[in-house]
Amino acid sequence: MSNDRSPAPTVLIAVATFNEIDNLPLLVAEILEAVPDADILVVDDDSPDGTGRWCQEFAATESRLSCLHRSRGAGLGTAVIAAMRYAVEQEYDLMVNLDADFSHTPQKIVDLLAVAKTSDVDVAVGSRYVPSGGVYGWPLHRRLMSRGINLYTRVLLRLPVRDCSGSFRCYRVATLARLDFDQIISKGYSFFEEILWRLRLAGATFREVPYVYVERERGYSKINWREAVKALYLIARLGLGSIFGSAPRQSAQ
């Protein structure tokens, strides 16, 4: 009797880090327990607190962990692009991106993978803004700001998801391979809106998976008002540029 079952999809879990030594060892342990068949890639931007050094030392004893070391200040968006390029080059089937600060619970990776493995969607989007999703630990002004930015993004970029700014997602790598990463202009947090926009233009399909965002307990957030203003400006450039046929195509910001 022949076995016609297809092999299980290969999965890469990508984590971008800068000064996350208080979180990364615990996070890697929980990811390995939650998804033991997956590999982990840490993209570290020369963290002065030893995050990259710890990763390199642990990777020497754990075959499922790999590290990419980059220069400091290169930007979160370019770190995720580096992970996407790695996933394409190594021919993974799925790539999950999550933050290093436990705002995305590693156990919820299973929910994203369940959708990606059992459907034809190209991006399973971890969503705070669908039923059963939510945010824990944010003050009211931050909740309102996030809701406003997501509405602004949905309208300008015509995205079919409610949570456009979150980074907790599972991407089908074959779909990522259709993109020209050199056209992506965002280096910072607005990358997460821009990549959805470019995937939509490439014909990708999306499904939102509820999760509850939990504010970090250790370390400090890297986002600031300057980064938020840059994101709003970039989203406007992309949205209005596509309407008038002049969307930016060169690296900027």
Results as ranks from 00 to 15, higher is better:
7 P>F: 06
8 A>K: 13
9 P>R: 01
11 V>L: 02
12 L>K: 03
13 I>D: 00
14 A>C: 12
18 F>T: 06
19 N>H: 09
19 N>C: 08
19 N>P: 00
21 I>E: 06
23 N>A: 04
28 V>W: 13
31 I>Y: 07
36 P>H: 06
38 A>I: 06
40 I>F: 00
48 P>I: 02
53 R>A: 14
58 F>S: 14
58 F>I: 11
59 A>I: 05
60 A>N: 05
62 E>Q: 15
63 S>Y: 13
63 S>K: 14
64 R>W: 04
65 L>N: 05
66 S>Q: 04
69 H>Y: 15
69 H>G: 15
72 R>F: 14
72 R>N: 13
72 R>E: 14
73 G>V: 09
74 A>Y: 15
74 A>L: 14
74 A>I: 15
77 G>L: 12
80 V>E: 13
82 A>L: 09
84 M>Y: 11
86 Y>G: 00
86 Y>Q: 01
89 E>K: 15
92 Y>H: 09
93 D>S: 13
94 L>P: 02
103 S>E: 15
104 H>G: 12
113 L>N: 00
114 A>F: 04
116 A>R: 05
116 A>P: 05
119 S>H: 03
121 V>A: 12
124 A>D: 13
126 G>M: 09
127 S>C: 07
128 R>C: 14
131 P>T: 04
132 S>W: 08
135 V>Y: 10
138 W>P: 09
143 R>A: 11
145 M>D: 10
145 M>Q: 12
154 R>A: 02
155 V>S: 14
155 V>M: 12
156 L>C: 03
159 L>S: 11
160 P>M: 04
163 D>E: 11
166 G>Q: 09
169 R>H: 10
169 R>Y: 01
171 Y>M: 04
171 Y>P: 01
172 R>A: 00
175 T>N: 00
177 A>F: 07
177 A>H: 08
178 R>C: 07
178 R>Y: 05
183 Q>W: 08
186 S>N: 06
194 E>V: 04
197 W>P: 01
200 R>A: 06
206 F>C: 06
209 V>T: 01
211 Y>V: 06
212 V>R: 10
215 E>K: 14
217 E>R: 11
223 I>K: 12
224 N>W: 04
225 W>C: 09
226 R>C: 11
229 V>K: 11
230 K>R: 14
234 L>F: 03
234 L>C: 06
235 I>S: 00
236 A>Q: 12
236 A>T: 13
236 A>F: 13
237 R>M: 05
242 S>D: 06
245 G>A: 07
250 Q>K: 11
250 Q>Y: 03
